[in-house]
């Protein structure tokens, strides 16, 4: 697996070069959100807003009304938890093209409950006019800026930073799921960093005679996937959703809502953070502890299929664990 460093930092500079309408706003987390290279390259298009997110979101709304496309950079929690009313009234209501780039989704930070965005998809997707995107690898980190840019309204992005694997060799597309494999037994749907975990289990599933249709979702809202619904309908064991987010209101809920709308009477298993806050610890620890890693998925497959899945640790595919301290990150958080 190819591992890349500071993908967003480099890409943002390159991508924004010929887009004078693109501005970057930052709330004192400029290098932590990999916006430092943009700041240094285009100082006239970078605005330091201080630790003051409510004003930053309203300010971004004002800039958008004047024809600019502000890319707000900070940690995800500080966007939707600190400035929700401002997002709703100063940005979402007027359907303004403010792009909110939220870093550190779920377990991707050891910063504890204060820094871990575990219910952001639930909250942001309930806002009218809001589009919600989530990236799962370096390729999607590179593509998401342009996908968001082409959407005429506000966009919230669950973003990744630091050292990232490149999983996909085709670009991310708006409202398009990636179908990674086909099978009649089971459907597995994942988003963000969880897709990496799903891919670690594919060989084991095959060995155990389970044919799965696997989907990776990067557009969480709007959530319109007819082929996915058809596969769920035709599946033997139903569907497992897997997400780096609370099981309430995220990917699992999106799938549940669509299944109910379509009248699909299949079992749905939601693998995610089980209605709990997390605490400060490493990503592998949190994924294991809160049950969103490959073994947790396999345990759920067992439940769905009603049979034991045989595997050893060695059978699990390669896992990439970014170092806690590395030159790809400004800080350990």
């Amino acid at each position: 697996m190819e591992i890349l460093k500071r993908v967003h930092a480099k890409n943002l500079v390159k991508w924004a070069k010929k887009k004078p309408d693109v501005l970057v706003l930052s709330a004192d987390l400029t290098s932590s959100c990999e916006a430092d290279a943009f700041r240094d390259t285009y100082p006239d298009r970078f605005f330091s807003m201080g630790i003051a997110e409510q004003n930053m979101l309203g300010f971004a709304g004002g800039l958008a009304r004047e024809g600019f496309v502000p890319y707000v950079h900070t940690f995800a929690v500080f966007i939707y938890r600190r400035a929700l009313d401002q997002i709703a009234m100063s940005v979402a209501y007027p359907n303004l093209p403010v792009k909110m780039i939220g870093f550190l989704p779920g377990v991707t930070t050891p910063g504890g409950a204060t820094h871990q965005a575990i219910e952001d998809t639930a909250i942001m997707r309930s806002l009218p006019n809001m589009t919600v995107l989530e990236v799962g690898d370096a390729t999607e980190v590179e593509n998401v800026l342009d996908v968001a840019y082409k959407i005429p309204g506000p966009v919230y992005v669950r973003m990744l930073r630091g050292e990232l694997p490149r999983i996909f060799d085709t670009p991310m597309e708006f409202k398009k799921a990636r179908k990674l494999s086909s099978g009649k037994d089971l459907v597995i749907v994942s988003a963000g960093i969880c897709t990496e975990e799903v891919l670690r289990t594919t060989k084991i599933l095959k060995k155990n005679g389970i044919e799965a249709s696997i989907y990776h979702i990067s557009t969480l809202k709007p959530f319109e996937y007819p082929e996915l619904m058809k596969d769920i309908k035709n599946s033997k064991y139903g569907v497992i959703t897997m997400e780096n987010h609370s099981i309430i209101g995220g990917l699992g809920s999106c799938v549940a809502e669509c299944m109910a709308d379509e009248g699909i009477g299949k079992k749905l298993y939601r693998v995610g953070i089980n209605d709990s806050f997390l605490h400060g610890a490493s990503r592998p620890y949190l994924m294991k502890e809160y049950g969103i890693d490959a073994p947790a998925l396999l345990a759920t497959v067992e439940k769905a299929a009603g049979k034991k899945i045989k595997y050893s640790e060695d059978d699990l595919g390669e896992v990439f664990i970014p170092a806690l301290h590395s030159d790809a990150k400004a800080e350990a958080l």
Binding site: Q54, G62, L63, R65, E66, M89, S90, Y93
Partner: peptide
Amino acid sequence: EVTTGSLGQGISQAAGIAMGMKLK
């Protein structure tokens, strides 16, 4: 010109507009 019934939000939007006007 903007939505402001939630108090305290007008000034941030005004500041963003003022900055946008300056930039243009």
